[in-house]
Structure formats: structure tokens, C-alpha cells
Design a protein around this nucleic acid. Structure first.
Lengths: 256, 256
DNA sequence: AAGTGGTCTAGACCACGTT
DNA sequence: ACGTGGTCTAGACCACTTT
């Protein structure tokens, strides 16, 4: 068995330049599954093959597949349903709706927001934007500004920057035609699945234009949230700068 | 084996009122391990018995113990060191120093903060404090105010409220005698290990007294972070209201 | 009844750290 | 050499969902 294991590791090394050189089998399986997800072999919301099928496909035991899938489920790339199967995570599931929207009301339960796109322009990447998106300065970028309202109270202005090479044909009308979350639309229209994000949070005085768009007094404090979102393989595909009014809502977080 | 399993579940039901009624064996093991941690059978930084010893103690297979320990390690109650053993998580480990301190500088690497306790009083719990700490209104509470500075620049004022019943004998001198993180001192002096926390984050105008303590202009925006920290078994043991200056530092977060 | 994921076991071997 | 956690396997059975 040991020789067999080594052999498969060697094969993995030869066949894939991105796979880690010497790694446990289950991590190799993980990498292969992510590769298939990235390639769109299974779409968000669809089921992936059963553990037994995957074990046969990769020539490993079911337990090894299980460990790989367990970790991908823990990372929210997949989710399991006992008796049904294992599915590709999607932002269209109501269950996941507040995973990336961390605003909760001071009183009561979180509610979905109403979204209105105010602007959608094509621009060239600034140095900062290019660095965040790992593209070249001057590359095409789609710039959106949108407003989120809760119970008709404008609460968030997001300035969103997307690589033009990936988000071709994105328009304000297309955006405003959707009711669900933005990331759900990215999945169905562009095949881009957001998997993870890093945020930098600060308190700032409301910039003039944003105060106007929110209908609040300029110079009141706003939460400024700078987000970089990543798809499979830690590839950044969104830069987002949000300004939140935090009198009736707060940004919730858990430390573990 | 099946009868044996059931029997042990039945025993668990009888012997422990807090354990979930019907749960997998590994979850029962988890609960027992947490109980031992809570009781102080193994102190932070110490090793717990090996998997083989635990398997013998609980009369289950090593694989079942492994699954229980894996989950506790994922929840940061324990950490594993291959070849050495499994240890109780501690806030004194440098590795963990920034798990609960989420401020990072705009430029450069995170650095430890200098802490100075400005006040330490005994008060009676307000209604809000009592609710957060799950004690009775009017119960004794230790109230601290402390200042955190980075590179001699005051950056954070924390107002901290602790249940008086647990933190007996806590004084400003005791606090200022320690150089490490507050939660590390709580472990060694009071046997309280912080395991998890929930935070509510808002942008606010700097209150007068806090602006003075920080040496900043009143009315500038500050990040207001309201934290409730929990020890083993989700028991709240700290309410903390922090005000952060976020011009040179930001609150970092990751969404998964 | 059949198929899926979930739990539990027993045993082999590997990788790491200490003695 | 020994003890620790880490990986992999094979097989049994349970719990849930659908046919």
C-alpha cells in the first residue's frame, strides 16, 4: 500500500503543477475537487458524485474521500445533506444569505436588503485596485455603486470593482433585474462563486457624495468596510468599499 | 457493538443532565472532555492524555476519540502537536496572541500592545450588564478601564465588566503587574479560559471622556466594539466595550 | 428496497519529537 | 527505540431520503 501511495503522489506531482509536492492523499483529493469546482464540472446548488463514486474515480478508500469532502464542507465550498448527497455551496440558498452580509438590526432578526444599483461604469484599474485584484494597472474594470436599504431605510453604499475580463456584459439594468444577493447573480450569470473574503474595518466621517446618496448629514460617522473577495483557489475577483450607517444596525462578528 | 453503543448512550443520559440526550459517541466524548477542561483537570498549556489513554478511559476506539479531539482542536479549545501530544489552548502562546486582538496596522506586521489600567472599581450590575453576563441585576461586578497603545500611540480604550463572583481580588495593581495579554492573566490568576466571543461593531462619535483618555479631538469617529466573551460551555464571563482609533490601524476580519 | 451521508471499529503504517 | 499524533484502509452498521 505504501508503494501505491507514493506512486500516486508521484503521479500527482507530474500531472499538476499547482498541487503541493508531497502532501497527504486527502489533500490531493481536495485539490482535485477544487479544480473540478473551478472548472465548473458541478455548478453551485448541484450535487457532486457520491463518496463511493469519488473513491472509485480517484482510486482511494471512501474514508479518504470523506476526509477531503469534510474539509471542503468545513470551508463552505460544499455542504452535505444526509441521505441526499453533497452539494456545491451557493449564495442563492437562504441558509447562506447572511454569511457575507454581516449587518444585523439592534432589535429583531436579520432581514434581506433591497438593492439598487446607482452606477455602472467601465474604467481602468488604478494602482490600488489593480493590486487588490491582482491585475495590471490600467486593465479594464467594472465599477458599480449600489445602495442597500432595510425596511426602506438606506443603510449601505457599496463601491464595487470587478475585473472587466471576467464580468463582460455587466450592466446596471442586468443588476437591477435581479432581486436576490449579488453573489448569487455572479454565480448564474458569470460562473463566479465567492468563497472567502478579507475585510478591513474602520470608522470614518461620511464622505460628501456618500452622505448624499444615503440621505444623511455629512460628517456623521460611518463604518467603512474594505473587502476583497476570493473565488476558488484564492483568486481575488472583487474589491468592495462599503460605507454603513450603524445607528439601527451593527456589524456582527464572532471570534473563535 | 450496537447494543454496547446504546448502553453507553443510556448511561450518559443517566449520569449527566447537561449531556444531549441522543448523540453520537464522539459528541459525548467531546462533552466529557469539555467538562474536564472546565473542571481544570488539565490547565491551559498542559497536555491532555494521549488518544490511546483517552480511548481506554472512555471505552471507545481511538478513532472516536480522534474525531472528538479533532473538533475541539477546530474550535480552538485544544491544539495538537504531532509527535508531542495534545494541549489545552492558552492565550499565553504567542501563536494565539492576535486571535482576540483584531487590530492591524495599515502598514507592516501586527505588534503587541502596551496595556495600562486606568481604573478598577467594584460596582453593581446594571440591567444591561446583568443580561450580557447572565447574572442578576445588582450583582457585584468588577469594572475596569484600560488603555492600549501601539508604539506609544494610544489607540484603544476598553471598558471591561467582569462578574465579581469569579474575579475576586482583582486590582489595578495586579493588572498593571502583568505584561502579557489580559486573557492570559485570567487563565493563571483566576482559572478562566476565554474560548469564544461575539462582537457588535459600530461607528460612533468619540464620547468626551474617551476622547480625553485617548488624547484625541472629541467628535472624531471611533470604532465601537461591544464584545461578550465566553468560557467553556458558552458561559459569558466578560462584557467589553472598546473604542478604537482607526486611522493608523484597522479591524481585520475574514469571512468564510 | 436502495442509495446517500454519518458513526464506529480495528489495524497498519508514516512523520515527528524525545529519550 | 519509543511514544505521540497523522494518514489510509476495509468493513460493519445507523439515520435519513427517495423510489
Amino acid at each position: 500500500m505504501s508503494d501505491n501511495l507514493r506512486a500516486r503522489i508521484a503521479v500527482a506531482e507530474l500531472s499538476s503543477s499547482t498541487a503541493a509536492a508531497f502532501s497527504p492523499l486527502y489533500q490531493q483529493i481536495k485539490a482535485l475537487l477544487v479544480k473540478s469546482l473551478d472548472a465548473g464540472e458541478w455548478k453551485p446548488g448541484e450535487s457532486i458524485p457520491s463518496e463511493i463514486e469519488l473513491a472509485a474515480r480517484f482510486q482511494v478508500s471512501q474514508g479518504t474521500v470523506r476526509k477531503a469532502v469534510d474539509e471542503l464542507a468545513a470551508e463552505n465550498l460544499l455542504f452535505r445533506r444526509q441521505g441526499k448527497g453533497t452539494f456545491v455551496a451557493t449564495h442563492l440558498e437562504p441558509r447562506v444569505r447572511f454569511r457575507f452580509l454581516r449587518l444585523a438590526p439592534n432589535e429583531g432578526e436579520p432581514e434581506p436588503a433591497q438593492s439598487l444599483v446607482l452606477e455602472c461604469r467601465r474604467i481602468r484599474a488604478s494602482a490600488d485596485t489593480a493590486r487588490a485584484l491582482e491585475i495590471k494597472s490600467g486593465d479594464p474594470v467594472v465599477a458599480l455603486r449600489r445602495k442597500l436599504s432595510f425596511a426602506n431605510i438606506p443603510t449601505v453604499i457599496d463601491d464595487i470593482y470587478l475585473p472587466g475580463a471576467i464580468f463582460k456584459g455587466l450592466t446596471a439594468d442586468l443588476l437591477n433585474g435581479y432581486s436576490g444577493p449579488l453573489y448569487g447573480m455572479f454565480e448564474t450569470e458569470f460562473g463566479i462563486n465567492m468563497v472567502r473574503a478579507d475585510e478591513k474595518i474602520r470608522a470614518v466621517v461620511a464622505p460628501q457624495d456618500i452622505a448624499v446618496a444615503l440621505g444623511v448629514t455629512p460628517s456623521i460617522p460611518l463604518l467603512c468596510v474594505e473587502r476583497i473577495s476570493y473565488t476558488y483557489g484564492n483568486r481575488p475577483v472583487e474589491l468592495r468599499i462599503g460605507h454603513y450607517v450603524t445607528d439601527e444596525y451593527y456589524y456582527r462578528n464572532s471570534l473563535n
